[in-house]
Design a protein around this nucleic acid. Structure first.
Lengths: 364, 364
DNA sequence: CTGAAAGCGCTTACAG
DNA sequence: CTGAAAGCGCTTACAG
């Protein structure tokens, strides 16, 4: 094994002796390209080619390099690669709330897709008071190759995200509206609100309350718009209310709201059905109903919930295939990263009504 | 303001700087240290000191540097810093399953703690067939400064994690057992199984079925051990079964199991109570009960579930403060990263019994 | 107090 | 087909 080079400056920290370290892990930490090169009796360039570049190396040499790499347990230092290449093999994911299964199911899909492609996933939380910008900056300073943004109810990110999308691929999930600057994957929110409302109306309900988080949640606003349209077309007066954005207060507020609207002296004689506009609110309302013992209120919601089939009262739901949303978001993102330059794509996943007992008009 | 340097090559995308530019990866947007130095009429060293090192720079110069940095929208390139320093300002989080709120609540806390300290969070999924090693390697190749591992039911990671913990700080959450090599945060699993069983027994139940995911889930095994001890001490025969590790099959299997054990001809006359050993199983059992209309089966579970208070039948639960678990895990990890060299710490978070209707022995 | 220089580990155009 | 060399952006001894 020729060893023409004096093995460029054995790095000081607890380094092995000079010249040719046969197999010994050079430094305290991980083996480097140079370590592998030395072990294989070749140069770093060649090792790099064999391990990543692919073409143009003799079979015999390539095999020697691979053996050495294996033996030393070599794996690439991403920082160095990224610094050199300019873009990290990592994507960023900005989520509104990790504790809500909807978002968890999105990350799970995105992580899977990233893993398959050898990409890492850096996450950041964009909910509860943290601005989009504050949430995303840490990802940018890591040179992520692209971004999945799922901050559905977090606010109106148009401005900042538009600027961002000009610099790197961005896919929005559960996006408030089809934005012109980046790909989006989501449902038809307005249709969702309308469908559920029409379902309730078709079963005899007249006093249906729409409950959302707050007016700043664009997704929810669209769903409400659908609800209101359906109500008005049926000659009914829409009625909606908000529970706010704080997870810790959601259930309490739901209790208050339901008390008010089911009381004997409630405006219009009290509601017979509730329509929830978003997952966290759905949970809060369910807990509140259980606590208040409201067993004869029809209940429908846009997002399906894990375990919702065990809820009481039964929850009628407009199920969206969240796994498909997450998977498609990842596919679109990686297509962009791989150079896809088509105009922004806006995908809608289909909705499926799952009726669980909101059918019967409860006894008055 | 002197400007001694020719302002090293205003980085127009793929511009050709002064001397020898054989290699110039086209860098899109971000300003570099050198850009800031040029703008402030000083050197990169000084800019670095002002922005991060802190001490030893004239106020006047420092201010000029900060102004320039602000103006250029400078933020540090993490790759370069990490490459230079050796350790990334990022931590890794390996989770079993993102879609289960338990894990989501852990990440949420860890992410918050990391964000406060200027650390990034790289995630990886260690569930469903992916080995610990395969899951963690991508994090190591990014030089994360430490690792939070929450793979409760994923298997027996002792060997690999022990080796890992020798190289960088690792904190295990919901750990199968107090391991000697790394910090752990969790509950007393055996006590948990025992407590819930004793609760059911105290209310007259004699035929209690324990349901877990599978024998490889160490956490669940410990909970089952507590259940069995309590049963035996009461002179009763333990009875347990598994639903397997596949999320997609959990509910189906739960239906089968419940059918079998509540049938008229069931061994011993059929069960009156079910004890679930882990969150996913709890969900599956709840759905199965709803589907089978089993309204008079007492139901208890170790993990609390979001929305569990709306379940039917009511779910008695041993609540663990998951937020505290996540927060403590992060604190322990950052203490280690900051140089804490105490022997491994094993923290237990307290358990709280939340009784929701499993009290009454159902009518026979 | 400040700057020039080296080098972290990698990739890649360039030369041989 | 292969290697020497440059340089990604940063930090940090080391001089001045």
């Amino acid at each position: 094994m020729a060893d023409p080079v004096v093995r460029s400056a054995p790095p000081a920290p607890s380094s092995a002796p000079s010249s040719a370290p046969p197999t010994a892990p050079a430094r305290a930490g991980r083996a480097t390209l140079v370590d592998v090169a030395a072990a294989a009796g070749t140069s770093a360039s060649t090792v790099s080619r064999v391990l990543h570049g692919g073409a143009g190396v003799t079979d015999e040499l390539a095999e020697r390099v691979r053996a050495a790499a294996r033996e030393l347990g070599y794996s690439v230092n991403r920082q160095a690669r990224t610094l050199r290449r300019g873009k990290d093999t990592a994507i960023g994911v900005a989520l509104e709330d990790f504790t809500i299964p909807f978002f968890g199911r999105i990350v799970a899909q995105v992580e899977q897709a990233a893993h398959e492609r050898g990409y890492g996933v850096v996450i950041t939380c964009a909910g509860s008071g943290r601005s989009e910008e504050e949430a995303v900056e840490p990802l940018l300073s890591r040179s992520v190759a692209g971004l999945v943004v799922a901050t559905g109810t977090a606010g109106a990110p148009e401005g900042y995200l538009a600027a961002l999308a000009a610099e790197l691929p961005v896919v929005q999930v559960d996006a408030p509206s089809a934005s012109s600057h980046s790909d989006t994957v989501g449902i038809d929110n307005e249709a969702a609100g309308r469908l559920l409302t029409e379902h309730l109306l078709a079963h005899g309900h007249r006093r249906v309350l729409f409950v959302g988080s707050g007016p700043a949640a664009t997704t929810v606003q669209l769903r409400r718009r659908g609800y209101e349209a359906a109500m008005r077309e049926a000659g009914l007066e829409p009625l909606s209310t908000w529970l706010g954005y704080l997870p810790s207060e959601t259930t309490e507020r739901a209790v208050d709201v339901l008390r008010e609207h089911t009381a004997s002296g409630a405006p219009g004689g009290g509601i017979t059905a509730v329509l929830s506009g978003v997952a966290r609110v759905t949970m809060g309302l369910a807990s509140a109903m259980a606590r208040l013992g409201l067993r004869d209120l029809a209940y429908a919601a846009v997002d399906d919930l894990a375990g919702a089939d065990a809820f009481s009262p039964p929850l009628t739901v407009l199920e969206q295939d969240v796994e498909v949303m997450g998977a498609r978001a990842a596919e679109l993102l990686f297509a962009r990263i791989d150079g896809d330059r088509r105009p922004p794509v806006h995908e809608r996943v289909p909705l499926r009504l799952i009726v669980r007992g909101s059918g019967e008009l409860p006894p008055r």
